[in-house]
Write a protein that binds this DNA or RNA. Structure first.
Lengths: 138, 138
DNA sequence: TTAATAAATGCAATTTAGTTGCATAAACTA
DNA sequence: TAGTTTATGCAACTAAATTGCATTTATTAA
């Protein structure tokens, strides 16, 4: 994706265009997998640690990124598609976690299943995490 | 579940029987939902904070507890059933997260679906997190 | 029952993850 | 171009988790 497109995304979400934000978004687009703050910190060394946290939170608040559930106890983020808004994240895709390299990807596959829950439980959404081996590790 | 049963579980998993471990396991059995270290710390005030972390990690390592994926960035744990071993957790049940009270429960419902992934991806397991409103909050 | 052994615990300290405050710099608009 | 607001860097802080060490405790063999 070009720099102009990235600028467009920032504009669309009412965010100022800064070098840090451009680089963070570019990194997410290049990696195509879930990233944590420490991933950013290791890669984008010219930016302050706190700034990277703030950038992640800005993107989260504005609907550019979503948090991806994981078991590790630290937060991971993935790129949203066009369906998210600042106050309501709408995600219906499958997350794939590779058991070998640990990377988590947002797949294009939708969660199209209905799930049965016991009586009394109301279902609002489903989040599916598939684990296995990715093509790179197979 | 009786104290004797709890002792049996500890023995089965080659863990020593201590007051702390008995109380931690009893709490998980009473609550029937995902718990974090801070939940334990607030409730089981006679034990040292570090001991509670260690107890959770002992139970995790030995297959008594499993980590439950969530988005918050802190670790939550749930009781395993008999299918887990120390080196391999095997979970095929649905997690239900209430959007109102925040509790996460392991439901009895199995993830019985097959999911399609792109070519090249090998599926080992599926973890499904359903969010909605639980019977207590409905 | 006792002694030895290894694991569990408590306390202090440290590391890791995340947030807040403030001054300054930078983006944006009129 | 000037004013305004937002983003950034630095320092400090809080929250979550881990490590080190000495002591205590559970367990087992004799």
């Amino acid at each position: 994706m070009s720099q102009e497109n990235i600028k467009g995304i920032l504009k669309t979400h009412q965010l100022r265009i800064t070098d840090c934000r451009m680089d963070v978004m570019q990194f997410f687009l290049d990696e195509k997998s879930a990233l944590s703050q420490s991933d950013l910190e290791n890669q984008l060394t010219k930016y302050d640690r706190v700034t990277l946290y703030r950038t992640l939170n800005s993107f989260l608040d504005s609907g550019i990124l979503h948090r991806i559930p994981n078991e590790t106890g630290t937060a991971t983020y993935g790129m949203c598609h066009d369906t998210c808004t600042p106050d309501h994240h709408e995600h219906n895709h499958v997350h794939f976690k590779c058991n070998k390299c640990g990377q988590i990807e947002c797949l294009e596959e939708k969660v199209a299943h209905q799930v049965s829950v016991p009586f009394g439980y109301k279902v609002d959404g489903i989040n599916m995490i598939v684990d296995g081996i990715c093509p790179k590790c197979a």
